[in-house]
Amino acid sequence: MRHVPTIASRELRSLFVSPVAYAVLTLFVLLAGFFFLSSLLQFEEYILRMQQFQYFDQMKELNLNDHVIAPFIGVMSVVLLFMIPGITMGLFASEKANHTDELLLTSPLTIWDIVLGKYLAAAAFVTLLVALLALYPGILLLYGDPEIEKTLAGLLGLWLVGLAYAGIGAFASSLTRNQIIAFAFSFVLLLVLWMLSFLADLGAAGGAIGSATGIADVLRWLSTAEHFERFVKGLVDTADLAYFGVLVASALVLTKFAVESVRWR
């Protein structure tokens, strides 16, 4: 595994000379600014209205965390759903297109060197995205007093969601030589994973799986949204941390098998 840093740094350098990385960064920062401002303005308007009607009791319940930061982090997790497949689509697909898979797989590297190196590069990019995003709630520290712990928990949740998405995106990329297909496939996978809890609710409401509540519970447990929301509420629980750990590990193991299978086809 001593070649992991070599693979990771090459991947990062390639990522940062590609227009995709800059397109994703720019779009992400702009969208973040837009959503942040809009939730801030909405909050302001809300306060004004409450003052007008003299709902002082309800006003005490208003706070920056629940009404600005939480919705902001929530919407950014949806933005990641689109952005991360763009970052991961080339991880393995482009190696096949460049025929460099023949170089990597005939060099004295293990498959784990390749898979972990590439994942690490994607994870570093995700970390950069989340760090940039943290600047926006950071601004609020200057003007108000949001609960720092709750904010950090939310950001941690977002980071974990991003890391999990990167693992799944890496897996999708390992299945094809076409980056567009890799993008579409990881997007679909992520969307399904995100929506599992809605499916569970729908199924329960429709009575389809209402009787077998076990299935609904399992679907809900599998859903990223379910675990992410607990972080946003400020709850950092080992069970939720473990969920993301298991998700990343499974995605990487699947990726390893997919890369290896080139040899056995």
């Binding site: 090459r10 350098r13 390639s14 000379v17 590609s18 460049n98 025929h99 460099t100 898979d101 023949e102 170089l103 005939t106 060099s107 004295p108």
Partner: peptide, 17 residues
Amino acid sequence: RRSVGYLPEMPPLYPEM
């Protein structure tokens, strides 16, 4: 693999490097 140098039919190059 350490003992082999291999030039595949299609040279394995990263165009952006």
